[in-house]
Each structure stands twice: as structure tokens, then as C-alpha cells.
Design a protein around this nucleic acid. Structure first.
Lengths: 132, 132
DNA sequence: CCACAATGCGGGCATATACCCGCATCCATG
DNA sequence: CATGGATGCGGGTATATGCCCGCATTGTGG
């Protein structure tokens, strides 16, 4: 056999990691994709779906659907911009609460990893992943 | 801001990498998840869906659905085992052909990464991901 | 000013993925 | 040998993701 496929390894690690974080922040009622999306929204709101897509490097249609899910949960609000085509996203109070409640859980998960792998390794990993 | 979320970074890298490999092996008509699944099947066939799930660390229902897709493409065959409950998977001739045709494309993608990041870095990355 | 290109979205379609439930089959124990 | 627990699957439901098409709005060149 040749070298194991880095892509498969990466995808597998991504699933495991997502599962780990999902479990960690489950108490606040969202998954890691939603939590992460909300964090991005919190940083940049108000912003359009297209901008959000650019920030997260996700397809705009993906963003649209994902935002609708957390909108139905009452965590974000969707409105129209000056440009009537734009859908503008903002966090709701409930959404801010979820972010606040989730932050320590998220930090704890992060710290667990830091302890398990070492801060240095984590830093390395992050920089490698970014350079992909 | 605290440290960027390793989970988000990982998920993002996973998407980019999958996209990169998808493009590389697109000529043979499957995506990287399917190709990787077929490689696992090739290594272990004949095997049951549950075994395949264990090998790939994927949920059995996910395996069932994914296998059905490549079965419809004529790349694998599904039969019953001695144990009438088991669904046994084997590669078809067309499937073997896809693996053969895809191998050099897959190798090329891998090599592109090795060149871009350095073999040493890639090795490091792989071992970190495995340890997650 | 107006037709046409550009932009922003929603919806359709497809795959990947997980969890849970129910059904069929198998197996071990009384 | 019969019955209950264990095992293997399929299907339902839900999210995440990408691509493409069509519609509405905006902006621009003639």
C-alpha cells in the first residue's frame, strides 16, 4: 500500500472532532457548525448571507439553509437590507445568550484538547491546517 | 478573541481537501468519499456493511446509503451472506477499473500536496490527525 | 431612459453523515 | 425446542454541503 490518503485521514479527524465539540456544547442546544456560524455572525453582524458565505468559506446556498435552521430556533433574525435583494442577518437576544452560555463549554473542550495533545502540537496543527 | 476553534479550522480544511481530491479524481466519475470507500472495500471484500462501517469509522446507516449509491453506478455488488441478515459487498469489474484508473489521479493529488507542503510536514500532519 | 449585464437569493437536486426505530434473523439458555 | 436477547439492516428524520437554475433587484452603457 502507498501512504494513507491525507484526505480521508482529514475527513475522519474532522468528523471525530465535530462529534467531540458537538457533545461539549450540546447543553446549549446547537451543534458546532451552528455555534461557529453564530460566532461569525456575532463578530460581523449585521451582514448579508453572501458576506457570511465569504467569511466562512461556505457556499451561499449552504449558508442560507443553515441560517434558516437557527432562525427557526430563534437564535438569529433575518431582514432585508437597503438593497432589497440582500438578506441581512443579526443575532437575537436568545442567540447572544446561547453564545454566552456556550463559550465556557467551548473553552473547556478546547482546553481538553490542549492538555491531551499539548499546546505546541495544537498550534502546529492549526497552522498546518490553515496552510492547506 | 481567544484561540481560533481547532474544530472549525479542521472542518474547513476537510472541506477544502475533499474538494481538491474530488476535482482530481472527477474524471473517473466518483467523489473522494466514494473512491475511499471503494478502496476499503477492495482491501477487505467480501465484507458486510457493519464491518465496512467499523473499518471506516462511519455509521452503519451511512455506509448502507453510500454503498447503495455506488451500487447503482455498478461499481460494487451487494449480496446476502450465509447469515441471511448480512449484506455482503464486493467490487464489480467496473469498480476495479475505477480504482485502477483513479489511482494515478489520486497519487498525483497526493504528490502535489507533498510538494506544496513538504513530505515531512505531511507526515507530521497525518500523525497529528491520527492522534486526534 | 431603457435594455442588458451583474448581483443576491431561494429552491431543486444530490451526496455525506448521524441517530433512532422497527423488522428479520440468529443464537444461547432453560 | 421454544423464547428472549443479540445482531444486521432498511427507512425515517435531520443537518451540512455544493452546484445549478430561475427570479427579482440593481446598476450601467448607449
Amino acid at each position: 500500500m502507498s501512504t494513507p490518503c491525507i484526505c480521508t485521514t482529514l475527513r475522519s479527524a474532522s468528523r471525530r472532532m465535530a462529534s467531540f465539540y458537538d457533545e461539549a456544547i450540546a447543553p446549549v442546544g446547537v451543534n458546532i457548525a451552528q455555534f461557529s456560524l453564530m460566532r461569525t455572525i456575532a463578530r460581523a453582524a449585521p451582514l448579508t448571507l453572501t458576506e457570511l458565505g465569504r467569511l466562512t468559506d461556505l457556499d451561499r446556498s449552504t449558508i442560507g439553509r443553515n441560517v434558516r435552521v437557527i432562525e427557526k430556533m430563534g437564535l438569529v433574525e433575518l431582514g432585508r437590507g437597503e438593497d432589497q435583494r440582500e438578506a441581512v442577518v443579526t443575532l437575537s437576544d436568545a442567540g447572544r445568550q446561547v453564545l454566552a452560555d456556550g463559550a465556557p463549554l467551548w473553552d473547556a473542550a478546547q482546553q481538553t484538547l490542549d492538555e491531551r495533545l499539548g499546546v505546541e502540537t495544537m498550534r502546529n496543527l492549526r497552522s498546518m491546517l490553515d496552510s492547506l
